[in-house]
């Protein structure tokens, strides 16, 4: 296809991606280097009839508003936002690490720093939910594949629901069931015989609930992909394994799993990418007291009375770096293959 035709076809799509994906990334980087203006103070002489005069500092609201209007980005702050307490917290981290406390205490203190709290939960969510969901999905796929044909359709229908559901709505549904007055929450209190046990009170329960939600909503994708993969397992290989005397488990181990391995890489990649941006469940479960994620931090900076663009920008840039690190094995491999092909 000649270059001219190619670009005529792809231009609209390319413009959309450059304007609304590439440029915002630039915009985020710029924003992260600025902080909002400080309030402008003026000295006001305050004279009272009997007390004489005193001067005091007051906020010049009009001037502040004017300045903010004029320079909406705020003032240049360099990397200041990146290292402050709300982000990488270099000073605080240094103090904590050099202190004489036990590892457990240090860990607890690090967890108090908002960025690290979010980062740790995000990573735990990514690397716990992804493998568990894949394992569950694979097991479901194997089981469904063994069922008679008529039952497969309805089971696939129900299996798709947790995945297709709006994340916020899905997490709300589980949240309501898990609330102390909901069916599951009440049952859990009953089991542990602890009437105060609730999502709000127990960080462990919150984490457990979020991770369970993650597995619940991620498993169907693995299931569907692996199920489709199972349909393409070469019958000849399977039959020759049977003739060679492989047991049921050995057939799975030596024929089916190697056949599905490339699919598993694909599923893992997609789910890691999606789980890294975990956000809606935190809102749905009102979990911010016990668990936050990087995406939630940005959301939190942007909502509320004063929008902190600088802070949101810095977290965004750090998050994007995280995505790039997560993707780097894929990118490096692609690059190598490309170089290999070109030579």
């Amino acid at each position: 296809m000649p270059n001219k035709t190619f670009f005529a076809f792809i231009l609209p799509s390319l413009i959309a991606m450059v304007l609304f994906i590439a440029l915002p990334i630039v915009s985020v980087v710029v924003q992260s280097l600025y902080v909002s203006h400080e309030q402008i103070m003026v000295e006001v002489e305050n004279c009272q009839p009997f007390g004489g005069c005193s001067t005091e500092l007051r906020v010049d609201t009009a001037a502040t508003a004017a300045l903010r209007e004029e320079q909406p980005l705020g003032r240049f702050n360099g990397l200041g936002t990146y290292v402050n307490r709300a982000h990488l917290a270099t000073t605080e981290l240094g103090v904590i690490l050099s202190s004489e406390r036990s590892i457990g205490e240090k860990w607890a203190q690090i967890l108090n720093l908002p960025f690290y709290k979010a980062l740790i939960f995000t990573l735990v969510y990514c690397f716990v939910v992804t493998p568990l969901a894949m394992a569950l999905g694979f097991t479901i796929a194997l089981a469904v594949n063994a069922l008679p044909k008529v039952t497969k359709g309805p089971i696939i229908f129900f299996s798709l629901l947790p995945m297709i559901i709006t994340p916020l709505i899905g997490s709300l549904i589980l949240y309501w069931m898990l609330s102390p007055n909901g069916i599951l929450g009440a049952t859990i209190q009953h089991i542990f015989n602890d009437p105060t046990l609730s999502l709000r009170a127990s960080p462990a329960l919150t984490w457990g609930a979020l991770l369970t939600y993650g597995v619940w909503t991620n498993a169907p994708f693995s299931f569907v992909v692996f199920y489709a993969g199972l349909q393409t397992v070469p019958g000849d290989t399977l039959e020759s394994a049977m003739i060679d005397g492989a047991s049921r488990w050995e057939r799975i181990r030596y024929v089916i799993i190697p056949h599905l391995a490339p699919l598993a890489t694909f599923v893992a990649l997609v789910q890691l990418m999606d789980n890294f941006r975990v956000f809606e469940p935190i809102v749905g479960f009102s979990a911010e007291a016990n668990a936050t994620s990087l995406s939630w931090l940005i959301y939190n900076d942007l909502t509320g009375d004063s929008q902190q663009f600088g802070s949101a920008g810095a977290t965004s840039v750090l998050t994007i770096l995280g995505v790039v690190i997560l993707l780097s094995p894929v990118l490096v491999r692609t690059w190598r293959e490309f170089k290999h092909k070109a030579v």
């Binding site: 609304f20 994906i21 915002p24 990334i25 915009s27 995406s295 959301y299 942007l302 920008g313 965004s316």
Partner: peptide, 10 residues
């Protein structure tokens, strides 16, 4: 792979 909220903040 970009989290949508990072783009929104831009």
């Amino acid at each position: 792979a970009m989290p949508h909220i990072t783009l929104v903040s831009g």
